[in-house]
């Protein structure tokens, strides 16, 4: 039940939308999504409700983020030995 699925909006009628999930279409409620949704948008859906409109520029940003992480400079690697768990502040 926890599985959220991203899909693409193919039709909007009031607060309902038809969403394509990798080939399977389902009707979804737009009552909980916090932005206007239009045809072509990607949305994240949980148990029949869209909970997020996924802006397409943020999909590109995610890919940039992955690239940045893989490229990240290794400046830390030569630093002093890392504290052991006992050194780390704990409550």
């Amino acid at each position: 039940m926890c599985l959220g699925a991203p899909g693409q909006v193919v039709d909007v009628a009031g607060t309902r939308a038809r969403v394509d999930f990798f080939g399977v279409q389902r009707e979804v409620s737009l009552d909980l999504v916090d932005e206007p949704v239009s045809v072509g948008d990607y949305v994240l859906v949980h148990v029949g409700f869209a909970i997020r409109r996924i802006p397409s520029d943020e999909i590109d940003q995610t890919l940039d983020f992955f690239a940045k992480l893989s490229r990240d400079a290794d400046q830390h690697e030569a630093g002093p030995p890392h504290p052991t768990p006992a050194d780390a502040s704990r409550t």
Binding site: M1, C2, G4, L32, H46, V47, G48, F49, I51
Partner: peptide, 10 residues
């Protein structure tokens, strides 16, 4: 009605 935040909002 079971599940966490994502199903609770529904």
């Amino acid at each position: 009605a079971t599940g966490f935040e994502t199903t609770a909002v529904a």
